[in-house]
């Protein structure tokens, strides 16, 4: 136990100030207004991998690490679509996931929004459309906003999410201890 506490003390607080958005993005801003009017900062997200290569998932995981500290900004991932406000979809939609994606979307209560994440979900990426892939998420369920990138960086994801929740510039001191060795 002492070694754990010592390690925690030595690691310090790694969380960084939340990014502010400099990008003007009309669909995102509309989504932001809609969401803010309903939820303020209490946003719950359900993620569906609709056929991704797993690259976007690595970066979605990174959002929960201490550096990005997503939950600290009032946004959390939930295990059921019935608890979610936003559906975050990655991947070109594979035909084998098309039905599951539709059902997940339909299981969400209204009002609900869809954020397509990653180049494949936005414009089919390197995968195109064929017997196994439907391509863009927007061709399967309605999409409200998108985050580009292959994969998008955690910062791009965070900006996209914070923009839709209208997060104000936070007052976080940056004096956290970051040295480790």
């Amino acid at each position: 136990m002492f070694t754990i506490l010592a390690r925690i003390r030595r690691t310090g607080i790694l969380s960084e100030p939340l990014p502010t958005s400099t990008v003007r993005d009309a669909p995102l801003e509309k989504l932001q207004r809609d969401l803010q009017s309903v939820f303020g900062r209490a946003l719950r997200i359900r993620h569906v991998d609709a056929g991704s290569c797993n690259g976007c998932e690595l970066e979605i995981h990174a959002l929960s690490n201490p550096y990005y500290n997503l939950e600290g900004s009032g946004i959390a991932f939930v295990a059921s679509p019935r608890h979610a406000d936003v559906l975050l979809v990655t991947g070109p939609v594979s035909v084998n996931m098309e039905e599951a994606l539709r059902r997940t979307y339909e299981a969400m209560p209204d009002p609900k929004w869809v954020l397509a994440v990653g180049d494949c979900s936005v414009c089919t990426g390197v995968f195109g459309v064929n017997y196994a892939t439907r391509g863009r998420v927007a061709d399967v369920i309605p999409v409200d906003a998108v985050v580009n990138g292959c994969p998008p960086t955690p910062l791009a994801l965070l900006r996209g999410l914070l923009q839709i929740t209208g997060h104000a510039r936070p007052k976080v001191s940056s004096s956290a201890v970051q040295s480790d060795s």
Binding site: S52, N96, M97
Partner: peptide, 11 residues
């Protein structure tokens, strides 16, 4: 399994 099948070989 097979849900993420994207037809890579065809692509």
């Amino acid at each position: 399994l097979g849900y993420a099948h994207k037809g890579m070989a065809k692509r």
